[in-house]
Amino acid sequence: MENAVKITRTESYIISLIQKIPILSYYAPSRGWSFLISWGHRLAGLTLVGYMFAHIYTLSLLFHPATFDADMRLLDHFVFSFLEWCVAIPVIFHSLNGGRLILYELFRVRAEEIVIRSMVILGLLYIFIVGFFFIEKTQQISVTLFWSITVTVSLIAFLIVLFKIWMTGNSILWKLQRITGSFMFPMLIGHMLVMHMNYLTGHDSKTILLRMESPFIKGVDFVFIIFLLFHAGYGVFSIIADYIKPGPVLKSLTILVIIAMAVSAYFGIRLIVAL
């Protein structure tokens, strides 16, 4: 079976430049790029978990709209805006690589060189588009229409993976990780896009509170947060379990992860129900 990835001269040159970074120069020739991408997937996932906690906290300020708006004005500062845009990098990387893993593990897509190239191109395009929207702040799209399309795509991805995976003997949690991942793949990408496409959608308390009155949006957010927290919790557990032997330490850390996700779920759902 063919293991070698065929690369062009230009790609080879770019890779040789990237490999000048010390940690990459060690692991790329010794474990391969897929290994590094896996590490990237973990680091991006952990970054997103941290961002998710911060995001839930920020949204909880909606109980006091004036405080929320004051905080959002702070985010208008160039540095915070830049950091917010940077979140698009782990979002798109984790999402696309998650898609790659599902294609590899469940749909026998072995053309890794094509998939990874597509990841790079789509990822760069996405980051550029989000940045463009971020600077322009003039686009308008119906949020209900946007989410209707995104949820439909998410449901299709969800059902395809569900039917593919459900009858296998894999553990239920492992299956749910893939299923929730497939649902969130379009949702997370869409979330970042729409929030920066319509500036007020994510930064103005009145606009957010008005949107949150819709039962459809409440439903979407409810499913999103449950799936997100499960996916995040199992992801973190999965990393911990690779390094901690089964025993009291692993059990304690697992309980800690469950508590963190449960508390976040409580605050998130309370927000959705109350607003």
């Binding site: 079976m1 063919e2 293991n3 474990r31 391969g32 897929s34 896996s38 469940l106 890794e112």
Partner: peptide, 27 residues
């Protein structure tokens, strides 16, 4: 297995091990 594919990369016999592990996941 997290499909990091380092197994296939280093295998001295050039076996695409991750392909077989993925078949296991696919069931």
């Amino acid at each position: 297995c997290h499909t990091a594919r380092a197994c296939s990369f280093v295998c001295p016999k050039e076996i695409d091990i991750s392909h077989f592990l993925a078949l296991g996941k696919e069931g």
